[in-house]
Every structure is written in C-alpha cells, then in structure tokens.
Design a protein around this nucleic acid. Structure first.
Length: 621
DNA sequence: ATAGGGTTAG
C-alpha cells in the first residue's frame, strides 16, 4: 500500500516514514486538486480507495474535505457527495462546505440547497462565510427572489453582512434577478470592496443590458484606485460590443494594452467579437493574427466577424484553416459557417459540413439543425430541408420560420400555409414575413390580406413589403400603391421599389414613371430611382425625357453600382455575374441558353426581360 | 482543508 501511495502522491521517501500521513497527504491532495480536471478522475478514485483501506478517512478530517473538493474539481459531484455521505466519522463544517460547494459549482443548485437545509437542522454545526457564497450562488441559479431575500436576512443573523465573498454572490444574484436596489444596498454596505465585488456590479449591469450603469461602476472603480482584473475588462468590453460602440471599445483596447492584458486569450477573443460586431473586420483580423494562442472562441469569433461583414468566402476559408491547424469545430462554429454556405448557395460545402458533423459526432442543437435546414433550402434542396425539419427533435420558432420560408420561396404557398397552421409554437414577426411572402409568391391574395390584417404582431417594414409585393403581383396595382405610400414611414423607398417592379411586370409604365419620380424626390443621391425613371420614360417612348433624366443624373454625379448574382456549379466553384459585363470564358454558350430559355418563356405567354447581366467569374478557393 | 466573479462564439 505504501509503495502505491508513494507512487500516486509522489511523496518523498523521507516524508513517507515521518508520515503521520495526514498533513503531507492533505497538502499533496491540495496540490493535486489545484491542477485537477476531469482527466484526473481515475487518479482521484484510486486515491479514494487508498484512503478507505488505510482508514485515513476516519482519522483525518482534512483528508475527507480534500477528497470531496478533488471530486468536485473533477466535475464529479456524485462521487463528492458519496464520499461525504459514506464518511466513517461525522463530517465537520469543512466537509459540509466542500460538499455544498461541489454541488453548487457543478450545476446542481437544488441539491446544494437541500444539503444546506440538512446543515441548518444540524444541532451543533452552523453555516459560516464559506457556506453562504455557495448557497447564494445556488439560489441565484434557481432564480428564486424570495429565497434570495431570506438568505440576505440570514447573513444578518450570522453576522456576515460585511463579508465581501457572500456579498459578491449576493450582488450577482440580485442583479441576475433584476433587483437593482438591493444589489446596490449590499454593495454600499461593504467597507472594504475588492475587485471581485466591483466586477459583480459591472458585469451584472452589463448582462442585464443596463450599459450606462455598467460604465458608471467601471469608471468609479478606476477613480477609487482599483486595479481592474481580466474579468473587469471582458465585462466592460461586452458593454461596448452590445452597444456596437466602436470608439468606446477602442479606448478599452488601448487600456488593455497599457495595463498589460494585451495577450490574454479571453480578452483578445472579446476584442475580436467587438470589432466583428462593429463591422471593423480588418481590426478583428489583426487581433486574431496577433494571438500566439488561439482557442475555439478565437476561431468562432473571427468566423462570425467575417459573417457579420457578409464576407462569406472568407468565413469559409477560415473554417478550412481551422480544420487544417487541427482545431475541432463545435456546434457554434458550424452554426456560424453554415449561413455562409446558404448565402453562397454552396451546396457542396454545406453537405461537407453536414457530413463532418455526423462523422465527428458533433451534437447538433437547435441552432445547428436550423442552420442545416436553411442551408438546404437556400441551396434549392427543398426535400432535404423538409427531411431535416421532420427529423428535428426539438423545433423552436426559428425552425418553423425556416421551413415555411423554404416552401414560400419555392412557390409552394399551400404547403407553407399548411405548416403555418400546424405550428406548435407561437408565431413571431419572422413567421408572418414568411407566411405573407408565401401568399405573395403563390398568388394567395385574399388569405394573405386576411392574415396581414389579423396578425398578432406589430407590422414592420418587411410585412408591408410583402403586402406591396403580394398586391402588385396579383395585379392590384392601386391597392399596392396605397400600401407603398402607407408604408413610407416604415420602409422608406423600398415599398416604392417593390411597387415599381410589379408595375413593370404588368407593363404599366405610366405608373412606373410616377413612382420613380417620387423615389427620386425621396432619395436624390441614389442611382436606382434615376435609372428606373429614365428607363420607364424609354419604355413609354418619351425619349426626350430619357435624355433629360440621364443628363441630370450625370450633372449630379449619381453613379450606378452594378448588381451581381452568382451560382455554384458542381465541382467548378462559384461563378459570379456582374451587370453589364461579359467576361465569363463561356459567355457565349451561357447567353445561347438564356436566349433559348427566354424564347420558351415568351412562348409560354410570359413577359421576359433577359440579357441584362453578363457573366464574370469569381472563385473563392 | 472548504469559499465569491469565470470572461469570449451562433
């Protein structure tokens, strides 16, 4: 046994003989558990067995406490608790505290509180300043405001109101539950505030979205000479990230460098997130490149940063790099990178990522499942999207929105409506956008109008646009125009643009001219309205007006930004077509097909305008 | 011997 104990604990030989065992064993346990993580569990079990056979557990109270704490650090609260309960001698307060802590720090708050109740009915043991922080944390995790206040009162009873540890936990709890006044009372009560207590205020306010309070406390703590910790920095950074305050964030960045936290991984990750959300993707990339050590957060943040800036090719490229350097993507990576595939209609990549998920057993959550479904839908694979929907274990409102929108954009309005009425969650704003666009694309005007009038959410720009579009497509141009005018406040020029498209479709060029003039009035610097008005005059044969509008446009220096579209061709990358250009190597063949299609469309009795775009080419890897 | 904040990503 001794040899085994020696090898396990790496005890020096000399000490082993003087063992009185207790102190040296405990100190080794202590050293061990400071480095503990789940992979230490086998060692912990071996140690446990050893302690049992050597009867140390009954003779040495510290050994029991250390063992409980060790199991806790191994994320094994069940073993911690069983060690506590099976202790040969009655556990002392240290052991009780360690056991309560093991439960509360391993997301078992209810069990921690149960154990606390047992402790409260103990005849000779009383909770102390080590007990309360864990208990208060558990209560806050459960979100019980009444219990929190009762426990606050208990602090008075046990003379712990000025304890900074219990008070930090109290502040966290109160702010988490939105009870600001009491949090501030607790805070003010503490004569010697430490940095953790300050952080609790700053981060608490930051998390509840009271950003100016968070900033106030941050500045106050600096004024009072507190040295901010890393937690302070990440907390205050989240404030500037949430408010998309680039300048405020830059100041913190400078401050971070000044106080020497520039190479902290978590802080750098927060900075990437900050710059990403503020659409300064170059700066985000610079922070990312400067990091010596990148973790999964760094990769996920930088991929998202490129996604925020709609640089989908770069997001995909980074995903590949991530794989190359051997960082395992997780569900968050996947949920960030799948939209890139959707936006690029890059089906091959989407499938590849899906396969990757399955192969590596990455557990899909609602985000991933929704992103997969959306990717299939956006790549035109409606059946695959539907299949993903059908096998999804737990659907949230986004899942329903995505599948309804999928049917809508594939022109399957009836199916979309069927799904809408089968919804098992409350519809939200987005649902109605999808449903209205379904009606719009399938000519279901009456039902669409009824849904619009009766929907239980406040109409926003998107809803109005759907209505303008729906009425316009159905040829109800006067009604469509009324809707565009009514929606001017909500969606500005977009309503008119939609209306104009419908008028063009119907060949109602007078209406186009009229609306385009209104557009130019509203948005004199934008090119779209000018071009549209000029073209519309052309279509009705008023060529002088065309020249006039074009001339005026030139004088004012309004320039047209060419539009572009793209498509992925299996095995040949993504091809982009820019308006007015014909630089694709196979432009001729492509146009031959377009003209053939146009012929079919015309023969089918439809109006068609083709040949406006010219093929270009673009590969993103 | 035991304790509070535990940061950042969809």
């Amino acid at each position: 046994m001794n040899i085994k104990a020696q090898s396990l604990l790496s005890l020096p030989t000399k000490r082993r003989t003087s063992f009185s065992s207790l102190s040296s064993l405990s100190s080794h346990l202590y050293l061990l558990h400071h480095r503990a993580a789940p992979h230490y569990l086998p060692k912990a079990r071996e140690l446990h067995a050893l302690l049992l056979t050597s009867s140390l557990l009954s003779s040495s109270p510290p050994a029991l406490t250390s063992l409980i704490s060790l199991y806790s650090k191994c994320c094994c609260p069940a073993s911690a608790l069983s060690a506590f309960y099976s202790s040969p001698s009655p556990p002392n307060l240290f052991a009780w505290n360690a056991a309560i802590s093991a439960l509360s720090s391993n997301t078992l708050p209810a069990d921690a509180l149960l154990l606390f109740r047992f402790l409260r009915s103990h005849p000779s043991l009383f909770p102390d300043h080590f007990t309360f922080p864990c208990v208060i944390k558990s209560i806050s995790d459960l979100g019980d405001a009444g219990d929190l206040k009762n426990t606050h009162a208990l602090l008075f009873k046990f003379g712990l109101v000025s304890d900074v540890f219990a008070s930090s936990a109290m502040v966290n709890g109160y702010l988490k539950l939105g009870i600001v006044d009491d949090a501030e009372v607790v805070f003010d009560e503490i004569p010697e505030k430490d940095v953790v207590l300050w952080n609790s205020m700053v981060n608490g306010f930051a998390q509840m979205g009271r950003f100016s309070n968070a900033k106030d406390y941050f500045h106050r703590m600096l004024e009072e000479g507190m040295v901010p910790s890393r937690f302070t920095v990440t907390g205050i950074l989240s404030v500037f990230t949430s408010t998309a305050d680039l300048n405020g964030g830059r100041n913190i960045h400078a401050f971070v460098v000044k106080i020497g936290y520039g190479f902290d991984v978590a802080i750098s990750n927060s900075l990437i997130d900050l710059y990403g959300k503020c659409h300064d993707v170059e700066e985000a990339a610079e922070v990312f490149e400067s990091m010596f050590e990148k973790d999964i957060f760094s990769w996920n943040s930088i991929i998202s940063a490129f996604e925020y800036s709609a640089d989908h090719p770069k997001a995909l490229l980074l995903f590949r790099q991530m794989l190359c350097v051997g960082v395992q993507p997780d569900s968050i990576t996947v949920a960030a990178v799948l939209p890139a595939c959707s936006q690029l209609a890059a089906l091959a990549h989407g499938r590849e990522i899906h396969t990757y998920l399955l192969r590596h057993g990455i557990r899909g959550d609602a985000f991933v499942d929704n992103a997969l479904m959306d990717m299939y839908a956006k790549c035109g694979m409606l059946d695959d999207a539907r299949n993903a929907f059908d096998v999804m274990p737990n659907r949230d409102v986004a899942s329903w929105n995505i599948i309804i929108d999928a049917y809508a954009s594939h022109g399957r309005g009836e199916d979309a409506l069927k799904l809408f009425s089968a919804m098992t969650t409350e519809p939200d704003e987005v649902t109605f956008v999808a449903v209205l666009s379904a009606c719009s694309h399938s000519g279901l005007v009456e039902i669409g109008v009824k849904i619009f009038e009766q929907m239980k959410v406040m109409p926003v720009a998107e809803h109005y646009l759907c209505m303008v579009d729906m009425l316009g497509r159905a040829g109800m141009l006067e009604k469509s125009k009324e809707m565009a005018a009514a929606a001017e406040k909500a969606c500005g020029v977009k309503g008119w643009r939609t209306y104009i498209a419908a008028c063009k479709e119907r060949g109602q060029m007078e209406r186009v001219v009229e609306a385009a003039e209104r557009l130019v009035e509203m948005e004199p610097a934008g090119s779209g309205a000018w071009v549209m008005a000029a073209n519309a005059y052309g279509w009705v044969g008023k060529y002088e007006e065309v020249a006039e509008w074009r001339g005026e446009m030139r004088r004012r220096g309004v320039r047209k930004v060419p539009g572009c579209s793209w498509v992925e061709v299996a095995g040949h990358g993504v091809h982009t077509f820019i308006s007015g250009e014909r630089c694709h190597p196979r432009a001729e063949a492509i146009y031959a097909v377009i003209h053939e299609l146009a012929g079919w469309i015309r023969d089918g009795g439809c109006l068609a305008q083709v040949g406006l775009n010219g093929p270009g080419e673009y590969r993103w890897n």
